[in-house]
Amino acid sequence: MTVIQIIMLAAVFLIASIISVIGGSTSLITVPVMLEFRVEPRTALATNMLALTLMSIGGTLPFIGKKVIDTLRLPLLIVLTLAGSILGALLVLIVPSKSMPLIISISMIAVAVLSIANRNAGVVPSVGIPSRIAEIAGYIVTFVLGIYGGFFSGGYVTLLTAAYIMLFRMTFIQAIATTKVINVFSSLVATLIFIKHGIVDYQLGMILGLAMFIGGIIGGRMTLSLSNAWLQRIYLTVVGILAFITLRKSQQQNHSTSTTNLTIE
């Protein structure tokens, strides 16, 4: 890879990380771009995970001491995330990810519909505490999404943010801050497994990771300066755009597969 290509990648990763602190779905942008630059798929996933770890650390720093991180639930959420992420990272080694774009796009469309239907969710602070069923569901979703986060991570934080708003009744800023901390552990444990199997491009990962670390700090500070209403608008815009992009790519892949099958027959 040439110096110019690396600079172009770093620029994309920087911009993506600034936006994704609020909306998530970083990997839906960064991994496809790496594949366009002919980075081997497994190496792209693993190297991207290293960069995501640094972005999550950078994105967490602005929230420390601001009393917006859910510290009461955090320990259990981290344990569940670590367990799920380990399983997810191991799946990368044995399972192809061709079906992921369709699953993600459908999930994001569902998130957008639910968010629009519950416009006050995450914008107006909730009165009272979540029901026991909702609380338990929040922990189950954390574990299940942790598996996906360790596997690919595209859309992981987006879906996790929506889950925390709807199940734990967090505001947008609380959900964004809490998921940033959780994503540090999700990305880190997956990265360590990828390192063990020798599929991380360290040089590229550190360059892109530095860009994302800076982007994470910028995005975190921007988040703190915005109201929950504006965070919701940006979040829904990102969800809508990425849902459209991933759905379209999935349809193109299905069309390509169908054409190939017809040719073979």
Rank of each mutant, 00 (worst) to 15 (best):
V239W: 03
G205D: 07
I176K: 05
P75I: 13
N254T: 07
M55F: 02
L262V: 09
Y202F: 12
T2A: 09
M34G: 05
L145D: 03
L50C: 01
L192P: 05
V189L: 06
I6S: 12
T158A: 12
G65K: 09
M1V: 12
I106M: 10
A243R: 01
I109G: 13
L45P: 01
S187Y: 03
I218P: 01
T60V: 07
N118T: 08
P101T: 09
G215M: 08
I136V: 15
T71L: 14
I129E: 15
T71E: 10
P32T: 04
I140K: 04
P96V: 15
S99P: 00
G216A: 04
I165R: 02
V200L: 01
I109H: 06
V113F: 13
T257W: 11
I116V: 15
T142K: 08
S56C: 10
I64T: 09
E135F: 14
P32V: 04
G23D: 10
G84Q: 04
M206D: 00
G215E: 04
V141H: 08
S258P: 00
A10S: 13
G155Y: 00
I207F: 10
I78D: 07
A117T: 05
A16T: 14
P101R: 07
S250N: 00
S258L: 14
T260K: 10
S126L: 04
Q174D: 12
Q232T: 04
A175D: 07
I195A: 12
T30I: 08
T257A: 15
A229Y: 10
M206N: 00
A163H: 04
L242C: 06
M170G: 05
L226P: 01
I133V: 15
S250M: 02
L188M: 13
Y164V: 01
T43I: 08
I173K: 14
I69D: 12
I140V: 15
S20G: 03
I4M: 11
V95L: 15
L87G: 14
T53L: 05
F244C: 09
I18E: 02
M166Y: 12
K249F: 03
A229K: 09
L224D: 05
I106N: 02
V189H: 02
V79F: 14
L247D: 06
T263L: 15
S105G: 09
A243H: 04
I245F: 07
F168T: 04
P96H: 13
I78K: 05
Y202C: 00
V157Q: 10
S187G: 01
I193V: 12
S225P: 04
L45D: 05
E135T: 15
K67S: 15
D70Q: 14
A112V: 14
L208Q: 00
E40R: 02
V12G: 00
G198A: 08
S225M: 10
L35T: 08
F37D: 01
L61R: 03
H197D: 11
A16F: 10
S225Q: 09
S186D: 05
V123P: 06
Q203A: 08
Y164D: 05
Q253W: 06
L262N: 13
L242N: 09
G128V: 11
N48T: 01
Y139D: 13
L208P: 00
L14D: 01
I182S: 06
L91Q: 08
L80C: 14
Q174S: 12
Q5D: 15
T53E: 02
I199A: 03
S17T: 03
G155S: 01
F63N: 04
L224P: 10
E36R: 07
I199Y: 08
A11G: 10
G58Y: 07
A11V: 15
V39A: 02
N118S: 11
Y148M: 01
